[in-house]
């Protein structure tokens, strides 16, 4: 149970978006406590319907547009609270982001070290890029059809890995996990991230869109020097 001191009445209680004693809006910057803040069970597999329900309920209570009408003094807090809620929801609803978040908070050092890409995935990514280049440069009769075929392959690969991820998270033991489980989680996430980039490249090739920079899945935490 994560605990927090209320910024309005000073009482200490379970971390939540609303103080248990005085009901003032709180903006608890506690990434580890996201499941508790959303009143969800402490496990990495999630009931999507329930998550959505909680998110909408909380949004209706603490979104600045609602607070503006009911309690204007709490507006600055509600902007921060809503930004926390939004980030929690965005992370938890996506199995990959949720897995990464879980790894970071359960795996300690393991979560922040980068592992190398699994060899089977590296080979697959390499081969697919070659085929993609061939399809684009060949100028053959139906380049779009061969790109479509490549896309199906990539999507199947990703789909398979996502299923593995889902069952790994679903079967997660209630107590702190053993290292082996964390390592397989990490390797799965790395593979998925490579496959996501690959899928985007194929989609862009298919739609003739210019390549944009990849989504910043892993942020540089080190920061800048002034």
């Amino acid at each position: 149970m994560h605990r927090l001191r209320c910024t309005a009445c000073g009482q200490t209680g379970p971390a939540a978006f609303f103080c248990g004693a005085c009901e003032a809006i709180q903006a608890p910057a506690l990434q580890r406590a996201w499941l508790q803040l959303l009143d969800l069970p402490e496990r990495p597999a999630i009931d999507q319907k329930l998550l959505e329900k909680r998110y909408y309920e909380l949004s209706r209570r603490l979104h600045p547009d609602r607070v503006q009408a009911t309690n204007p003094q709490a507006l600055p807090t509600s902007v921060r609270a809503a930004s926390i809620l939004n980030e929690a929801y965005r992370t938890l609803r996506d199995p990959e982001l949720r897995g990464r978040w879980w790894l970071e908070h359960q795996g300690g050092k393991l979560g922040s070290t980068n592992s190398s890409v699994p060899t089977d995935i590296a080979a697959f990514v390499f081969e697919t890029h070659e085929t993609l280049l061939d399809a684009q440069s060949s100028g053959g009769a139906k380049p779009s059809e061969s790109i479509e075929a490549i896309l199906v392959q990539v999507q199947e690969q990703r789909h398979g890995h996502l299923e593995q991820l889902a069952s790994l998270l679903e079967g997660w033991p209630p107590d702190a996990a053993e290292a082996a489980r964390l390592i397989s989680l990490r390797d799965l996430l790395v593979a998925l991230s490579y496959l996501a980039t690959l899928q985007r490249d194929v989609l862009h090739a298919r739609d003739g869109l210019e390549k944009t920079s990849p989504e910043p899945r892993q942020r540089n935490a080190a920061g800048l020097q002034g």
Partner: peptide, 12 residues
Amino acid sequence: TTIPAAARQEYT
């Protein structure tokens, strides 16, 4: 990204 949204960055 749904707003309000926040990001943090550490500097030295």
